[in-house]
Write a protein that binds this DNA or RNA. Structure first.
Length: 219
DNA sequence: ACCCAGGGTCATA
DNA sequence: TATGACCATGGG
């Protein structure tokens, strides 16, 4: 199976990634919202601001003023939108009863609940499910579409749920803990790989996936 | 001076 | 269903 071979190749080349960058489940959730269409280096600055203000906390974010929060989030871009989304998420998070209550939900129910929050789409929800709640869901992002369509393993314009199902059934057996570990590493490896390679040159012979790619186009 | 980055929502046809 | 506009900063 091609999907497994790509994983083995990436893992052999980069090793374990120990993702998500973030110390607590809530930091991971906040990071997932802030990194929407945004470079992670910018998100780090915003999270550093929240930490410096002792505000990396759902209750405190929920009751901060929009202007204040937007100012702290400024480096992450879209700061007005993200202040709104993060605050809305925190309000929901508190209303639900926090981490403990949410952890009691099964994966399907939790995913459905996350998607109902304004500003949480499929990828952000799956980031949170996989990296904050350790649930076996495969995250589909722009890197995944680009890489695997160029490897010839997918078309690239499939719907999100279609692709998620494709990866999960190709890689997972029965939604076990082992799947969570695999999906966790795999998504991290894809992102790492995307950063590592040259974006401007579509033909990259030095890439670690050069042998896997039939057309040798691996960016 | 461009181009892009670990998306999502909303308006239109 | 399927495009397009919009959000906005920082690094290459």
């Amino acid at each position: 199976m091609g999907f497994t071979r790509v994983y083995n190749t990436l893992y052999a080349h980069y090793g374990p990634q120990h993702w998500w960058p973030g110390d607590t489940p809530f930091e991971i959730m906040a990071g997932a919202v802030l990194t929407q269409n945004t470079a992670w280096t910018n998100v780090e600055k915003a999270i550093a601001n929240l930490k410096a203000q002792d505000h990396l906390d759902p209750a405190r974010i929920a009751r901060a003023s929009h202007e204040q929060l937007a100012q702290w989030l400024k480096p992450s871009g879209y700061f007005n939108i993200k202040a709104q989304r993060l605050q809305g998420f925190c309000a929901w998070y508190m209303a639900q009863g926090g981490l403990k209550t949410l952890s009691a939900l099964d994966t399907h129910a939790l995913r459905h609940a996350l998607l109902a929050v304004h500003g949480i789409g499929p990828e952000t929800a799956d980031d949170i499910l996989l990296y904050a709640f350790h649930r076996p869901v495969f995250v589909i992002d722009a890197y995944t579409r680009r890489l695997f369509s160029r490897l010839g393993l997918i078309k690239g314009d499939e719907g999100y749920e279609t692709l998620r199902h494709t990866f999960e059934t190709a890689l997972g057996n029965d939604s076990t803990k082992a799947d969570t570990r695999l999906f966790n590493e795999y998504h991290a490896l894809i992102v790492n790989h995307a950063k590592d390679i040259c974006r401007k040159q579509p033909l990259c012979m030095r890439c670690c996936l050069a042998d896997v790619c039939p057309s040798r186009i691996v960016t």
